[in-house]
């Protein structure tokens, strides 16, 4: 098992054997993952949602998160797949309707390359947190503030309520005001 970073793991998750067999419809891509601690182990919960590029700038449709895949880190043991269409907490969500537009305000000025670079940087922060939690690597207030800042720029505002519903702690730490 190669030592992949969280970023790389998430970016290639669609072809992971387990994920393939979850049979999510074509077009569902991984969103920003959620870090959580279960039974003292670090876990990564990757939400899946879809986007539709309409060719109009800032009118790319954002659809609700519909599936999540959870694995332990760094072992990447798959511990869960959930289909939110069957989760009573998400009963009010119409997964076939878009819930927002991209680019949102915080990133309106960013071109594709710039946005992707910042998103990659954000994903790199996840590895920093993992290193701090698992190896006791240095992690300061500044690091955390940086991650929070990036998160709040990159994350589409229309997804906030869904992240809050998925993991209150993660939401509270990185997304809440």
């Amino acid at each position: 098992m190669s030592k992949l970073s969280i970023r790389e793991t998430v970016q290639h998750i669609n072809t992971h054997d387990f994920v393939l067999h979850c049979n999510m419809p074509l077009g569902y891509v991984p969103g920003l993952p959620i870090l959580k601690i279960i039974h003292d182990e670090l876990c990564l919960q990757v939400p899946f949602l879809k986007y539709k590029v309409t060719g109009q700038p800032d009118q790319t449709l954002v659809y609700p998160i519909r599936y999540t895949v959870t694995m332990t880190w760094p072992e990447k043991k798959m511990i869960g797949f959930s289909n939110l269409s069957y989760d009573p907490a998400f009963a009010q969500v119409d997964f076939s309707k878009a819930i927002g537009f991209f680019r949102h305000d915080a990133v309106k000025h960013m071109k594709k390359a710039e946005y992707r670079a910042m998103r990659d940087e954000l994903l790199d922060q996840y590895d920093k947190v993992a290193a701090a939690l698992l190896e006791g690597a240095e992690y300061t207030q500044e690091d955390e503030a940086h991650m929070r800042r990036l998160m709040q720029i990159i994350m589409e505002p229309s997804l906030y309520p869904l992240y809050q519903a998925l993991d209150q702690d993660f939401y509270g730490k990185y997304l809440a005001e």
Partner: peptide, 20 residues
């Protein structure tokens, strides 16, 4: 052996992290 995190409450509290 699964790796155990050093601080199980990391995501729950506003952590008292060291300043840099």
């Amino acid at each position: 052996m699964a790796k155990i995190v050093r601080n199980a409450n990391f995501f729950k509290n506003k952590e008292e992290l060291p300043a840099s």
